[in-house]
Amino acid sequence: MDGNGRWAKRRGLPRTMGHRKGVEAVRETVQAAGEAGVRYLTLFAFSSENWNRPEEEITDLMGLLKLFIRRDLAELHKENIRIRVIGGRARLDREILGLLVEAEELTRNNSAMHLVIAFNYGGRDEIVRAAKRLAEAVGRGELSPANVNEHTLSAFLDTAGIPDPDVIIRTSGEQRLSNFLLWQAAYTEFVFVPVLWPDFDKSAFHRALDEYASRERRFGAVPERDVALGS
C-alpha cells in the first residue's frame, strides 16, 4: 500500500494526512475483496524498515493501527473475517501487542475471509527467524537435517498455513517487492498500478483483478496449447 506520503505532498498536506486517508482505502479494499470472494487478503501495513522514518510519522502510524483495531475490529468480527498478524513482535510496545493478540484471538474461528496484516514485517527477517527456529528444532532432535526441504521451512514461516499469494498488487507506480513475502512470491503474479494508495478504490481493485485474470499461470511448466501443438 504505497503512495500515502506523495498523495499528501501533492495536496500540500503533512504525510500523516496521507496515512489517515490510506486507512479509508484499507476499509474499502477489505470490503471489495470480500464482495469479490477473495479468501486471503494480505496488507503490508508497516515494514521492519519503516522504523527509519521520522519519529513523529512512526508515532502517527502506530496510533492509526490502534484506532483501526479499536474502531473496526467489531465490524470485521461481525463480517466473519479472521485476522492474522505476521511480522516480528520486537520493538512493539505492550499496548500494540495486546491489541494484535486481541484481534487474532477474537476472530480465530471466523472463516468468511482471512485478513493478514503484515506489521513490523520484512521478508528477509521472516526467513532468518524461520531458519533459526528450524535449526533449534534440529538441535533438539525433533527434526532430522535430511528431512529439511521447502515444505519444512515453510512451516516455520510467519505465513505457515496460509497459501502463497496468487497476485501481489503494488500501488503508486513502484515496481519492486520491497522485502515483501520474498519466499512466498516465487510464482506470484504482479500487478503494478499508478494509483496512489489513498486513491485506491473498489474500481481500481477490480481492474487489478481483471489484469490478473488475463494472465496464464504456468508455474514453470509448458503452456497446454504448446504441448498440444508439439504433440
Rank of each mutant, 00 (worst) to 15 (best):
S48I: 07
A160N: 13
D2L: 04
G12I: 06
F190W: 13
K66F: 00
G22E: 00
K66P: 01
S47V: 05
Q175I: 00
I58Q: 04
G3P: 05
W51I: 08
D199M: 11
I58H: 03
L177W: 07
A131P: 02
H206N: 15
F205R: 10
V167D: 04
M113H: 10
T107I: 09
D60W: 03
I81P: 00
Y212W: 14
E142G: 09
R215G: 04
T159Q: 09
G122N: 07
F119K: 00
F205A: 04
A160H: 13
G141L: 08
R207S: 15
F46V: 10
M62V: 05
F119A: 00
Q31C: 07
T159G: 08
W197A: 04
E56V: 06
Q31D: 14
A103K: 05
G173F: 11
G63S: 08
G141S: 11
I162L: 13
R89G: 08
S178P: 04
R108V: 08
A45H: 01
P198T: 03
E35H: 07
E104P: 03
T29W: 05
L73H: 07
L43P: 02
G87K: 11
E211M: 11
F219L: 12
V222K: 10
S214R: 15
P198V: 07
I81V: 13
Y40S: 02
